[in-house]
């Protein structure tokens, strides 16, 4: 196996399967060239080697808690995940209500649209005061930043459910439970889409709010990046950017994998649709 990895045939197969590696490698190469030949000042972009040092030192625990990118990132990731989960929970519930009740939709939609056009970071100072500069201010800002998007995506999913299929449910006089189940299954792709969109927004809102106001415990990747920028400590700044970028990429990839795993074929199996015995011989 170890010898096989060294062969060009293996790498050709890997690159054919994951062509994104080529793009990432090109970016790394460009970064290396720019810093090696000092095409941009050292104070603006740190070299890959310097950034690697910061990452390795953070992993090894050689950096203080205030400068350790991984310790700081863990707090940021926790905020992102809590805020994102809350926004999904509330957004899907509200979106479902709006999607099923057209009157409620007409009443609430203007309010949702109004809040969607407000940048969440503008509400952040309000929440800071309301929650006495505590952790809750960050969570509420993230959640409220994502909720309108999730609500609208899910409600729109209901509107796009095929009218022919809804009519079939009506004609065959299915129970309300079956009807609701079928509609929820129909909007599942919209829910996953909303989750992906909300995930990206929650990362942006978290980092920006951390840059605006450092949390009381001082644990925030956004705050660390801002301090590093002010102190011209670019290796830490770029390491912070890379970590948050990788987290966002991994999160999106994870949601896509969940989408594939929970895809229609699996759901079908859960519902008892895969009956080989139903393949009747003539």
């Amino acid at each position: 196996m170890s010898i096989y990895i060294l062969k060009w045939k293996y790498w050709r197969a890997v690159l054919y399967k994951h062509p994104g590696i080529i793009g990432a490698f090109c970016c790394l190469l460009l970064w290396f060239v720019v810093t090696q030949w000092q095409l941009v000042g050292r104070t603006l972009i740190a070299s890959p080697l310097e950034v690697t040092h910061v990452v390795v030192d953070s992993l090894a625990g050689r950096l203080a808690r205030e400068e350790n990118v991984f310790i700081q990132a863990s707090a940021t990731i926790r905020r992102v995940l809590i805020g994102w989960s809350l926004s999904l929970l509330a957004g899907i519930i509200i979106g479902t209500i709006l999607g099923l009740a057209s009157t409620a939709n007409r009443i609430i939609e203007p309010v949702v649209e109004f809040f969607r056009s407000i940048p969440p970071i503008m509400l952040f100072p309000l929440f800071l005061v309301a929650f006495n500069y505590n952790e809750e201010a960050y969570i509420v800002t993230i959640a409220l930043g994502c909720i309108p998007l999730v609500v609208l995506t899910v409600a729109q999913g209901f509107q796009q459910v095929s009218s022919v299929r809804l009519e079939i449910l009506e004609v065959f006089r299915v129970t309300k439970g079956v009807r609701l189940f079928a509609q929820i299954m129909e909007i599942l792709p919209s829910c996953v889409l909303a989750a992906r969109l909300a995930f990206s927004i929650s990362i942006i809102v978290t980092v920006v709010s951390e840059m605006v106001f450092t949390p009381r415990d001082g644990m925030a990747l956004g705050a660390l990046a801002k301090q590093a920028e002010m102190a011209f400590h670019t290796p830490i700044l770029i390491a912070s950017i890379l970590i948050i970028g990788l987290f966002g990429y991994a999160g999106n990839l994870g949601i896509r994998k969940i989408e594939e795993r929970l895809g229609y074929s699996k759901i079908n199996g859960i519902l008892g649709g895969e009956h080989s015995t139903l393949n009747l011989p003539r």
């Binding site: 095929s162 022919v164 299929r165 009519e167 079939i168 449910l169 004609v171 065959f172 299915v174 079956v178 079928a182 299954m185 129909e186 599942l188 229609y264 759901i267 079908n268 519902l271 008892g272 649709g273 895969e274 009956h275 139903l278």
Partner: peptide, 24 residues
């Protein structure tokens, strides 16, 4: 019992034919 003209669209794509039949 209805067999609609748009029979293809009348089936839920996420469920098997069997599930479609028994569910409805």
């Amino acid at each position: 019992g209805i067999i609609p003209q748009a029979y293809t669209e009348s089936f839920f794509p996420w469920a098997s034919l069997y599930t479609n039949i028994t569910m409805v």
